[in-house]
Design a protein around this nucleic acid. Structure first.
Lengths: 109, 109
DNA sequence: ATTATTTATTGCAATGTTACGATAAACATT
DNA sequence: AATGTTTATCGTAACATTGCAATAAATAAT
C-alpha cells in the first residue's frame, strides 16, 4: 500500500499523469519558461536565474528530460538544453484534448 | 531542506504548479474524465468505476476540490460532484498560455 | 600536467503522497 | 428509535519528492 496502482488505469491516463507530474513543480515551470524565452540554456544559467543549488537544478532538468519535455546535447564542457519540439507538440495536443473534454452544461450541482 | 521553496517563484508559477499537481495522478485524471462524461457523479459511482477504496476516492475528490477543479454539493445522503465551470475555463487558459510560450526555432541543440 | 569550469551522481534529512481499514457523521428508510 | 446508506476523517505503512553538500567525471584553459 502507498504506491500508485497504475495497473488499474489506462496507458493514456498513466502517460498524461507522468507528463503533468513532470511539469507540476514551480522550479520546473520556471525552467521551462526560461528555456522557452531564451531558446537554449545551460545548467549554470538556471542556477543563477532561479537561485537553487546546482545539484537541485540538475535533478529537475533530468526529470524534464526523462519525461521527454526537453533535450540536452553536450557542447564542450557544458550541456545545452532546449524544448523537445515533437514531444512538446504532442503534449499540447494531449492536454488540449483532455481539457476540451468538458462542455459547460446545466446538469451540474 | 526537502520542502519546495515556493518563495523564490512567482505566484503564477506556484499557482500553475498547484493546478498541474492536482491533475498529475491517473486516478484524478480518471475521475475528471468520468465527471466530464457523465456531467455529475457521486463518490460511490467512482468507487465502482475505478476500483479504489472509498476512502481513497474521497481523498482524491478532496484534492480536486481544494484545487478548485471540481465542486460538490450535498444532495441528501450523498454528495454530487461536477466540474467547476469558471475554474475549468481559467485552467484551460492558464495552461494554454503556458504551452503556447514555445515557438519552434532552429536555435536548438 | 595542472588547474579551472561545468554538469551528473551519491547520500542524506525533512517532508509529502498514496492507499486502505476503521470509525465517525449525517441523512434516509423502516 | 433502530437500521441502512453514503461520505469524510483519522491513523498508519510504504514509498516518493525536494533540496543540498560533497564528490566524481569530463572537457577547456593555462
Amino acid at each position: 500500500m502507498g504506491l500508485t496502482r497504475t495497473e488499474i488505469f489506462t496507458d493514456e491516463q498513466n502517460k498524461l499523469a507522468v507528463l503533468l507530474k513532470a511539469m507540476a513543480h514551480p522550479a520546473r515551470i520556471a525552467i521551462l519558461q526560461y528555456i522557452m524565452a531564451s531558446k537554449t540554456c545551460i545548467n549554470g544559467d538556471l542556477v543563477e536565474e532561479l537561485g537553487l543549488a546546482q545539484a537541485t537544478i540538475s535533478q529537475h532538468l533530468k526529470e524534464l528530460k526523462t519525461a521527454g519535455l526537453i533535450q540536452g546535447t553536450i557542447e564542450g564542457v557544458s550541456v545545452c538544453y532546449c524544448i523537445h519540439p515533437e514531444n512538446w507538440n504532442l503534449l499540447k495536443e494531449t492536454i488540449g484534448t483532455f481539457l476540451k473534454g468538458y462542455i459547460v452544461s446545466n446538469e451540474c450541482c
